[in-house]
Amino acid sequence: MTVGDLIDHLSTLDPAAPVRLAVNPFFPMAHRTDGVVESPDENGRRIVYLADSGDQLGPLPPEVAVRLGWHEPTVAPARPRRRTIRPSTDQ
């Protein structure tokens, strides 16, 4: 993804919406962002970094992990009907 791609994606969204980082596809968590820094890589190419604030906000919503392609959609297994136990009439 390039800065242009990111701008294109962000330009369709609410500019007042908070930004979060989704990290670790195997145990997805949400983090606050804290900054943007540009720096050259080892080949002199300019790279833009989005910084994590260090605040882990908790698990990423499952639908976000699915939309990112990190997890497959899941459906809870059907639960069997519970049997009703009727009180005994023998006394």
Rank of each mutant, 00 (worst) to 15 (best):
M1E: 11
T2E: 05
V3M: 09
G4F: 02
G4I: 01
D5Q: 05
D5K: 02
D5W: 02
I7N: 11
I7R: 09
I7D: 13
D8K: 08
L10V: 01
T12G: 09
L13Y: 00
L13N: 02
D14H: 03
A16F: 07
A16W: 11
A16C: 05
A16P: 01
A17P: 03
P18A: 01
R20G: 10
L21F: 01
L21Q: 02
A22H: 01
A22M: 03
V23A: 10
V23Y: 07
P28H: 03
A30S: 15
H31G: 05
H31L: 04
R32W: 11
R32Y: 14
T33Q: 02
T33H: 01
D34H: 04
G35N: 07
V37A: 08
V37R: 13
V37I: 05
S39Y: 09
S39C: 09
S39L: 07
P40W: 00
E42S: 14
E42L: 11
N43Q: 05
R46N: 08
R46A: 06
Y49T: 04
Y49P: 06
L50Q: 03
L50P: 02
S53G: 02
G54E: 00
D55Q: 14
D55K: 11
Q56E: 15
L57E: 04
G58Q: 14
G58N: 15
G58W: 14
P59D: 15
P59A: 13
P59G: 15
L60D: 14
L60M: 12
L60G: 12
L60V: 14
P61G: 06
P61E: 08
P61C: 06
P62T: 07
P62N: 06
P62S: 08
E63Q: 06
V64C: 02
V64L: 12
A65L: 03
A65I: 04
V66I: 14
V66S: 05
V66F: 05
R67T: 10
G69F: 06
G69N: 07
E72G: 03
P73A: 00
T74P: 00
V75T: 15
A76H: 04
P77N: 05
A78M: 13
P80R: 10
R81P: 13
R82P: 10
R82E: 11
R82A: 13
R83S: 04
R83D: 08
T84S: 10
T84W: 13
T84E: 13
I85N: 08
S88T: 09
S88Y: 13
S88N: 08
T89K: 12
T89N: 13
D90W: 08
Q91F: 15
Q91V: 14
